[in-house]
Nucleic acid binder design. Structure first.
Length: 478
DNA sequence: AGCGGAATCT
DNA sequence: AGATTCCGCT
């Protein structure tokens, strides 16, 4: 089509002002080249983007079980997708068809019984993106994984469910009456364990939760030398965007080195093979430096947090009826033994953070509002831009409308509303402003080894650190 | 609403 | 490969 779409080159702004607590998706995941076999943004990326942006929570938002989201306004989502892809005739029927293709890929599945509700299989998404993160070897995880054969590192203090609960306060105390870590008592059926996986995607290295055998986790070998999906090799310099993160102003949110990772604390005592490679400061610096690079706006996206909140009302009880398609598929995914796969642990921390902000609170000008649809809007961040929509050229009759929507977001607003649903979380007012680094840091589980560390001294989770962790884990294992 | 086959496009 | 489009079926 001749709509001169440039959206894929004009995606998100270098530094998203709003970060939904949760899984961190490195910038590369948002680049056109990050889509295997495609130079265009993939639908699931787009969905994540929308989910990431508060101003679209009236259109699509995390809801229900972990990873679950509901398309509140199918037509609008389709419209946005159509704009992004320059498909003016896009509609929900077509979009949903595309979503259905993700079922087989296990990137998504349908939440049965809930209209317009789908669920990300983050373990898949993350695995695809973080093939090297070996959760199975994580002391953090091993300590709490009851199904991994007890190979936990000897000197790692066990992490109890209680401890985890404290780390991730929004996590449900239990799913369906069973321990989050136990699979036993659950109802038979694929969902029993699956739920836990869903709840702790970052813990799914163990057999009980993992949704599929390692061989099915992805086309990527565990330790492929340099053959990483989407051309991404976490071991290579530049992985995780060290080299293309935008330079951030002091105090700005989500500097490139902020990469939530619960492993960080567990590994703080381990040797640091990469310590001499790149000073954290420099890493961040460099990341920023390159932003302006070659492709202008594209270059500089920093890792993003994009994860669903832990719903206050955990919909652990899936309404799935019987063993329909999705259920069967999940069954297939079923228990791979310690796949170890790597889940994005990076995500872990993010998970811990998750939810905190989320979406329930203030008012935000959303596309829906624009459309006279009144929906609750959580507080938004100021310069959030919806990435993409700027792309399609004038051909799109919706351009004007779209632009309006972009301009419509704004200002920081007082956090007026409380989370509407009863949630165990502290009131929003007690939370740090999302635009502040403290926002995330304060929510991080305190570092056991440095419990009283002030936020400013909290360990930074830089990409380098992640590399270090990976290496450290290897060493630890050997 | 949701599903999935099939043809087609990019 | 990853949609997009169309469509019949449940």
């Amino acid at each position: 089509m001749d709509c001169n779409c440039v959206s894929d080159l004009l995606l998100t702004p270098p530094v998203p002002a709003l970060w939904t607590p949760g899984i961190a998706f490195p910038d590369w995941a948002y680049k056109p080249e990050s889509s295997p076999g495609s130079r265009q943004i993939q639908l699931w990326h787009f969905i994540l983007e929308l989910l990431q942006k508060e101003e679209y929570q009236g259109v699509i938002a995390w809801q229900g079980d972990y990873g679950e989201f509901v398309i509140k306004d199918p037509d609008e989502v389709a419209r946005l997708w159509g704009i992004r892809k320059c498909k003016p005739h896009m509609n929900y029927d077509k979009l949903s068809r595309a979503l259905r293709y993700y079922y087989n890929k296990r990137i998504l599945h349908k939440t049965k019984g809930k209209r317009f509700t789908y669920k990300f299989n983050f373990s898949k998404v993350v695995l695809v993106n973080y093939p090297l993160l070996d959760m199975a070897s994580s002391p953090f995880l091993l300590a709490q994984n009851h199904f991994n054969g007890g190979s936990a590192a000897p000197d790692c203090s066990p992490v109890t469910p209680e401890a985890l609960q404290s780390l991730f306060p929004r996590l449900p105390e239990s799913g369906r009456g069973g321990s989050l870590f136990e699979r036993g008592g659950g109802p038979p059926g694929p969902d029993g364990d699956k739920l836990r996986l869903d709840t702790f995607p970052f813990l799914s290295s163990g057999a009980p939760c993992y949704s599929k055998p390692p061989s099915l986790l992805g086309p990527y070998p565990r330790n492929p030398p340099f053959d990483y999906p989407w051309g991404f090799n976490p071991y290579l310099p530049g992985a995780f965007s060290l080299n293309n993160c935008p330079k951030l102003p002091p105090g700005s949110l989500y500097p490139s080195h902020f990469y939530p990772n619960p492993l960080q604390t567990s590994l703080s005592q381990l040797p640091n093979p990469f310590s001499s490679i790149l000073p954290p400061g420099e890493a961040a610096e460099r990341g920023g430096g390159q932003t302006g690079g070659t492709n202008g706006t594209v270059g500089g996206q920093s890792a993003r947090l994009c994860i669903p909140p832990y719903p206050s009302t955990l919909a652990l009880n899936r309404t799935d009826v019987g063993s329909g398609g999705a259920g069967e598929r999940e069954g297939v995914e079923g228990n791979g033994p310690s796949s170890g796969l790597g889940l994005g642990l990076g995500l872990g921390l993010g998970l811990g953070l998750g939810g905190v902000t989320l979406g329930n609170g203030g008012e935000r000008q959303s596309p829906l509002e624009r459309r006279s649809v009144v929906k609750q809007d959580p507080e938004s961040d100021s310069e959030l831009e919806i990435t993409d929509l700027s792309d399609c050229s004038s051909e799109n009759e919706n351009d004007a409308d779209f632009i309006v929507s972009k301009e419509g977001r704004l200002n920081s607003r007082p956090q007026t509303a409380e989370a509407k649903s009863a949630t165990p979380l502290p009131p929003l007012s007690s939370l740090p402003h999302p635009g502040s680094p403290r926002h995330l840091k304060n929510l991080l589980p305190s570092n056991p080894s440095t419990p009283s560390l002030p936020p400013s001294l909290s360990p930074s989770l830089s990409m380098v650190d992640r590399h270090r962790e990976t290496e450290a884990l290897k060493l630890a294992r050997s």
